[in-house]
């Protein structure tokens, strides 16, 4: 799942980053991929569509989306 999430970031989002330029622990926001608010919203919609889930409101918290590893865990919780 980590590879699929990375693939989405590289291929579908306006972040101008290569697949090998970040890993699952790279912060998505400041100091890392520096995803802005609009790109991040697109990313959430894309994750929901790709993994056929809908994040509940409580899951939309900074600590659940801080990096690819955390996102994979959050998605896993929604697919159980």
């Amino acid at each position: 799942m980590i590879n699929s999430i990375k693939q989405l970031i590289v291929e579908k989002l306006d972040v101008n980053v290569g697949y090998d330029e970040f890993d699952q622990t790279t912060p998505l926001f400041e100091g890392g991929l520096a995803m802005d608010s609009i790109v991040f919203t697109e990313f959430i919609v894309l994750l929901e569509k790709t993994f056929k889930i809908e994040f509940d409101d409580d899951a939309l918290a900074v600590e659940n989306f801080s990096n690819v590893e955390k996102i994979a865990e959050t998605i896993a919780q929604h697919t159980r």
């Binding site: 926001f29 608010s37 919203t41 409101d57 939309l60 900074v62």
Partner: peptide, 10 residues
């Protein structure tokens, strides 16, 4: 600053 949907909800 850097308001996104996660920070906004918080």
């Amino acid at each position: 600053s850097n308001l996104n949907i996660l920070r906004f909800k918080a």
